[in-house]
């Protein structure tokens, strides 16, 4: 195999699980793999939101990786250089969602942004892992969070609307990056308002 991140060829270990296609084949080499750093203890994320209208919107957040230099580099190539193939690196991480009963809802891109990027970086992660998801949210404001301060981010207008019925549903939101949590709290807020019973979230990276 040729490693997706460093382009060197590597030998893949053989296993019965891979032979019977239970486990997906490796796409990156061992050396690149160990450079990713898992989040060990999930940070308490609600503190910043206590006292605001979003306080109880999001029930919990689970993040998989920390945003170290290596992750920054890989994610940059995926999201901004549009290297769609890199989604495959994270297949095993998202396959854990196959076992859950809740409704899986990815955070959407604004339609204009989608045309620029040519793919939705969150949906792609789910697609390659064969995780079924439902499009419930629509992004109404085309703006990026990049370059804004924490205060600016946390006080922006709501930028999602709910497009289908979520009455009494249990929902898992999926996003790529958790920085201040504005995106997820906003999304959770509109979902709860539309009647969702429980809203938790999973993000690939915790900054």
């Amino acid at each position: 195999m040729i490693c997706l991140t460093c382009s060197t060829s590597f030998l893949e270990s053989a296993s019965w699980q891979k032979l019977f296609l239970i486990k997906t084949p490796e796409v990156i080499c061992e050396k690149c793999k160990v450079k990713f750093e898992r989040v060990k203890t999930q940070k308490d994320n609600n503190n910043d939101w206590i006292g605001s209208i979003y306080e109880d919107a999001l029930d919990s957040v689970q993040s998989i990786y920390s945003y170290n230099e290596w992750m920054k580099q890989v994610y940059q190539q995926y999201k901004f250089q549009l290297d769609v193939e890199l989604a495959k690196v994270f297949i095993p991480d998202f396959q854990q969602l196959l076992r859950i009963q809740e409704l899986i809802v990815p955070i959407p891109l604004h339609p204009d942004m989608l045309l620029v990027r040519t793919f939705s970086q969150v949906e792609q992660l789910l697609c390659v892992a064969n995780v079924p998801f439902t499009e419930v949210l629509r992004k109404t404001v085309n703006g990026s969070q990049i370059g804004k301060s924490k205060k600016e981010r946390m006080s922006t207008e709501l930028f999602f609307s709910v497009t289908s019925d979520v009455q009494n549903k249990k929902i898992v939101l999926v996003d790529d990056l958790y920085t201040t949590g504005t995106t997820l709290h906003h999304a959770a807020f509109v979902l709860k308002k539309a009647g969702a019973q429980k809203v938790t979230a999973m993000t690939l990276i915790r900054a």
């Binding site: 769609v84 045309l115 793919f119």
Partner: peptide, 12 residues
């Protein structure tokens, strides 16, 4: 590398 492109509305 092929992927499902939002601009092409299909494979790209």
């Amino acid at each position: 590398t092929a992927f499902n492109c939002a601009r092409c509305k299909g494979p790209c």
